[in-house]
Amino acid sequence: MLSSYKGYRMLLVHAHPDDETINNGSTMAMYAALGADVTLVTCTRGEEGEVLVKDLAHLAAHETDSLGEHRVGELADAMKALGISDHRFLGEGEKKYRDSGMMGTEPNNRPDVFWQADLEEASSELVKIMDEVKPHVLITYDEIGGYGHPDHIQAHRVAMRASEKSSWNIEKIYWNVMPRSVIQEGIDAMKKLGSDFMGAEKAEDLPFAKDDSFVHAMVDGNAYVEKKMDAMRAHSTQIEVDGPFFALSNNLGLQVWGNEYYTLVKGEKSEPLDSRGHEMDLFAGVTPS
């Protein structure tokens, strides 16, 4: 890898505050620290999220419906922890998109939710950012949004459509992926301690765990994983310090969050490669311009 990534630009498109940290926190912190310009676009404010902090239960959508603005603050704190200064929401004012809730729930039907957004209109909003930022690398979800959440699926659709419409040619596009072998290792470790990971008996039980053949790149961000953990703590209404994510790291070590995995869907796999043939640098083969 290079010692400096000045002149290199990365854009990440995520559905809700906290998705970016769980999926890409170490990657974001690493490249930002090495000089790359890292831009995060979050499509909703996470208004329909479950509130895990008892004292903040009143923020929930079915009570004061003020969780979204609270999560804006959490996201700002998380980005500060990761060293990211350029983070934006997709759309403002009348074009602001609301969290759609889990698939099959009543909020899916609200006219203002992201799931109901017109694809061409929403992607045009993202094109404005793409044409401004001119990213060399784009990161988003796969076609099922990782695990089937409507906002994740829509974020995938919007990001991919925007990449087609943008006047800027993005050299490499990656989708987040969590390999089954890594999840299985976590499940096995927690079983030995008499616990479980999200109630799963095996990795195949979790919709976001994909076959290892989908892994084309692995970023070793372990030197920056403490920043990721601080960012996870910042998303306190969504991630419990004593919950499954932190339990996994307690049992497997922080490398379970320091290593982040990707499927390359546009561009060529480039050296350096690790012993399994995975790319080690998402900017490999990119010429800054």
Rank of each mutant, 00 (worst) to 15 (best):
D281F: 07
A231W: 01
P111S: 05
Y8D: 03
K202I: 10
P111L: 09
L67G: 03
D18R: 10
H58Q: 12
F197D: 02
T140Q: 00
M103N: 08
G83H: 06
M198Q: 07
G68N: 06
K6M: 04
T27D: 07
P179V: 11
W115K: 03
F89K: 01
A234L: 03
E125I: 10
D37P: 02
L254M: 13
F245A: 03
P288F: 06
A76H: 08
S167F: 15
K95I: 03
E171Y: 14
D86G: 05
I139A: 03
V53H: 10
L126C: 01
E94N: 12
G46V: 01
T263F: 02
Y8S: 04
D86Q: 12
I129Q: 02
G243A: 11
D220L: 07
G68M: 07
H70F: 13
V127R: 00
L11S: 06
K192Y: 14
L193T: 13
R71W: 08
S66A: 14
K228A: 00
Q116N: 14
L2R: 13
L12A: 05
V38R: 01
K95L: 12
V256C: 13
A60C: 04
S124V: 05
E271K: 15
K134E: 07
S236C: 15
I173V: 10
D142I: 12
I187C: 01
S195P: 06
S236R: 15
V158T: 03
Y174D: 04
A209M: 09
L52T: 12
C43E: 04
G91Q: 11
V256H: 14
P17S: 05
S236G: 15
L193V: 12
V225H: 04
N109K: 14
D274N: 07
G91L: 11
V41P: 00
G148C: 06
T21F: 01
V13T: 09
E132F: 07
K54Y: 02
E201Q: 09
H58R: 10
E143G: 12
H14V: 06
M280T: 13
E171A: 12
